[in-house]
Simulated assay, not measured.
Amino acid sequence: MTSVAIFDYGAGNIFSLKTSLEKAGATVDVITNFDKPNGYSGLLLPGVGNFDPAVKSITESSKIKFKEYVKDGTPVLGICLGMEMFFEKSQEGKEKGLKIMNGEVIILPDSMKVPHMGWNDLEIKRPGKILQGVDNGAWVYFVHSYRVKPNSNDIITAEADYGIKVPAVVEQDNFFGTQFHPEKSGSVGKIMINNFLDVCKR
C-alpha cells in the first residue's frame, strides 16, 4: 500500500482530499512539519489557505528544509495554492515562493468574477504522467483567484480557457501541480489521483 503525506498549513479543510486518497488505496498521514526524515512515497500540498502563511509554514517551521525533504525524487502534488507555491513569487503576498518552477503567480483579470468557481474543460497540450487516461475536454472543478504564469510553457501539460488561457496542470521532474481540485472533480479527478499514486509507487 502506498503511504503519502498531506502537508497541513493550518487552514484545515483537507478531509475530502484525504478521503479521496484513502479510497484510491493509499495510507495517508497529515503532517505539519518536516522534522522527521521522509518515509513517504509521495507528498501533497493541498489547495487551501493564503500564500504567505502557507509558504512560511513550509519554510520556517521545519527542521528539515522542503527541498531537502524531497531531494530523493519524492513525487509532490500541489493543488491550487499548493501548485502556486512551486513558483518564485505571488501577487497574493510578499513572501518568496519555493522556487521550484520559474515564473510567478498573478491575479485573474478584472474581466472575471473573482474567485472563479466552477467546472471548466481541460485543453491537453502535451502528455503528462497524471493526465494518462484523461480525455481532452474533460471537466474539472476550479476555485481560485490567481493563476500561474510560468517563464516557459514547456511545463504546462493542460490549460483551461476563460477567455484567457489559464495553466491548469504543470509537471516538472517529480513535481506535479493542478490549479483545480482533483478531489472535487469526480471521476476525472479520481483518474488523476490514481495516476499520482502510481507515480509514487515507482
Score class of each variant (00 low, 15 high):
V4L: 09
S57E: 11
N33S: 15
D173S: 12
S185N: 03
P109R: 02
A158Y: 00
L108F: 11
V143Y: 12
D154Y: 07
S145E: 10
K71T: 10
P53W: 08
F175Y: 15
E183Y: 08
N50H: 11
T74N: 06
K23M: 13
C80F: 00
P127K: 12
M85C: 11
M1D: 14
I106P: 06
I14A: 05
P115F: 14
N153Y: 13
N102C: 03
F66T: 07
N120T: 06
F7P: 01
E159G: 02
G73C: 15
K94N: 14
K113Y: 06
E159T: 07
I31V: 11
D52H: 08
C80S: 04
K184L: 15
K36H: 10
M85A: 08
K96Y: 15
S111T: 15
S185I: 01
V199I: 14
A26F: 05
F51N: 12
G128K: 10
G42S: 14
K65D: 15
R202E: 09
M112S: 10
G137K: 01
T19C: 12
M85R: 04
G137D: 02
G47V: 04
M83D: 00
Y40P: 14
P53D: 11
K36F: 05
F51T: 12
T2E: 12
I64D: 12
A11R: 05
E22G: 06
V148Y: 10
P37Q: 09
T74I: 06
S152I: 08
N120F: 03
I193Y: 04
K125L: 13
W139M: 14
I64K: 11
V134C: 09
S20K: 04
P75A: 10
N194T: 06
G10Y: 05
T32I: 13
I79D: 00
G163D: 01
G78W: 00
D35M: 11
K36S: 10
F15M: 08
S3C: 07
P53N: 11
K129A: 15
